[in-house]
Amino acid sequence: MSNASRFWWLPLALLLSACQQAPVAPTDFTRADQIQRWEMSGKLGYRTADDGGSASFDWQQAPRYGEIRFSGPLGFGSAELTWQPGMARLETSQGEWQARTPGELAWHLTGFWLPVSALEYWSRGLVWPGAPAQSEENDDGRLSQLSQLGWDLEFDRYETVGRVALPHRIKARQGADSFTLLIREWQPLPSQP
């Protein structure tokens, strides 16, 4: 059999792949709410009345699935928090826990309820639609202050990624508890076709 006859299917495969709808590229986003999938990395610092700490993180997010890998001095060495609708799991060197939401499990890491579901929105500079909120915008129309779920948040640093300005530092306080999310790298991902 000749090489030409062995690969008869190749032109057909190329034609079919060209006919598929191209996914949206990260540079095509013009608003933060268009970003549904992303990767980001940075540092999470937190403080409670009795404790405090920090950790580096790598976060991958899709519309129905999330994963955050923590490393550093959280007392666990490293930890992985994953979730999907109705189920979340935290794995550390000290054990494994499961709950309905990732926020319930984040307590094992920080000692307070960290609203991970809301952070999916806050990290993009958006108000979480799941609870009432009071917000203020800066002169550029970007979220600068937010009170939601008992947290008072300050968005004081944005950087442009592609064509969208995204937060790179968020400070949050709730009574004696506080955290700072410092995002070093933001990578919006193409939407699925």
Rank of each mutant, 00 (worst) to 15 (best):
S117W: 03
V116S: 02
D140P: 00
P132K: 12
D139I: 04
A131D: 12
E137L: 14
W97Y: 09
G162E: 03
L146C: 10
Y121M: 04
P129I: 08
Y158R: 03
T101N: 08
A133L: 06
R124F: 07
S123T: 09
P115C: 13
W97G: 01
S144M: 13
Q134M: 03
F112G: 05
F112D: 00
R157C: 01
E154W: 04
E154D: 14
Q134T: 08
A131M: 10
W128V: 02
E137V: 14
G125V: 04
W151G: 01
L153Q: 02
A118P: 07
V164L: 10
G130V: 05
Q145E: 10
G103I: 06
Y158K: 03
A106L: 07
G141M: 08
S117I: 05
V127G: 05
L105A: 02
L143S: 02
G141E: 01
G111K: 06
V116G: 00
W151K: 06
H108N: 14
T101K: 12
G162H: 11
V116Y: 09
D139V: 09
R100A: 11
W151R: 09
G150H: 14
R124A: 03
V161G: 01
T110G: 01
W97H: 03
D139A: 15
V164P: 04
Q98H: 09
D139E: 13
R124G: 01
R157T: 00
P115Q: 12
E120D: 08
G150Y: 14
Y158E: 00
W107D: 02
D140F: 12
A118G: 15
D140K: 15
L166H: 05
L166I: 05
L119A: 03
E96F: 07
L126A: 09
T110Y: 05
A118N: 14
Q134V: 09
T101M: 09
L114F: 15
A131T: 02
S147N: 14
L166A: 01
Q134K: 14
R157W: 06
D140N: 09
S147V: 10
E154R: 15
R157Q: 13
L153A: 05
Y121N: 09
R157M: 01
D140E: 11
E159Y: 00
S147G: 06
Q145I: 05
L109S: 02
S123C: 09
G103K: 10
E136D: 10
L153N: 05
P102V: 06
V116Q: 08
L126Q: 14
D156T: 04
W107K: 12
D156M: 05
S117A: 15
Q145Y: 13
L119K: 01
